[in-house]
């Protein structure tokens, strides 16, 4: 075992972790916001909104993320109205393209996860809220949202872990995150095994920490479902 090499590799790869984390957090943040919009449309009474949301979810869940990313990165520049628009300085950046496609994709999955959570909210609890005069955004913010989020959390934490791994695809549109840097190291050293093992270890550690955080959140939000110690 060449510990010196592994140590050097780790140091190089760890320097790319902030980029991986930036991709992850930004895409989860914007994807989450977009998912709220999509799920709002998906459960709307208006058939145009509802079908648009259905179509969106179908497209972004049904096609490979890698192809979506290539389409955003290589494809958008073909359109003159994008190429010559004020957005182009942003959209030609690989990082922006990667975050955009990751967010668009996770929004599709997350919208379905949130919809599952919404469907699990008891009509009776909503009725109780209406009966004291709650409606509209207040009802969503205080009652429907918190209950739905609790139901959605286990499935949502799976999506979060998937997103950590999906950031690796950004290496293919020239973003220097952990996997990209690993591939560069391999092309310089031809030591595939050591480098990729180091990269895999980094993803494992990241996901371990994220899963711990999610488990803690779930624990704190599910006090109402745990049995209380019965006092005599």
């Amino acid at each position: 075992m060449d510990f010196v090499f592994i140590f050097q590799t780790m140091k190089t790869l760890l320097a790319a972790v902030p980029m991986t984390l930036a991709l992850f957090f930004l895409s989860i943040f914007f994807g989450g916001l977009l998912a709220l919009l999509i799920v709002w449309m998906r459960v709307a009474k208006n058939p145009i909104l509802r079908n648009f949301a259905k179509g969106y979810i179908f497209v972004f869940r049904g096609s490979p993320l890698l192809i979506q990313m290539f389409l955003v990165f290589y494809g958008l520049g073909q359109f003159g109205f994008i190429r010559y628009s004020f957005l182009w300085p942003f959209l030609r950046e690989p990082f922006v393209c990667a975050v955009l496609s990751l967010a668009l994709c996770t929004a599709g999955y997350t919208a379905e996860i949130f919809r599952g959570g919404l469907r699990a909210v008891s009509v009776k609890e909503i009725e109780a809220a209406r009966s004291i005069g709650m409606s509209g955004f207040l009802l969503v913010r205080r009652i429907i949202g918190p209950i739905a989020f609790r139901h959605a959390l286990p499935a949502y934490s799976t999506e979060i872990v998937m997103m950590v791994k999906s950031t690796a695809l950004a290496s293919l549109v020239t973003v220097w995150e952990v996997t990209g840097v690993a591939q560069r190291l391999i092309s310089q050293t031809y030591r595939t095994m050591e480098v990729f093992l180091c990269a895999a270890a980094i993803y494992l550690i990241l996901n371990f920490l994220i899963l711990q955080a999610m488990a803690l959140l779930e624990h704190r939000l599910s006090q109402h479902r745990r049995a209380v110690p019965r006092l005599p």
Partner: peptide, 12 residues
């Protein structure tokens, strides 16, 4: 309004 099945908010 008091409901037959109480309808308390379970998460609170």
């Amino acid at each position: 309004m008091v409901f037959q099945s109480f309808n308390l908010w379970s998460h609170m």
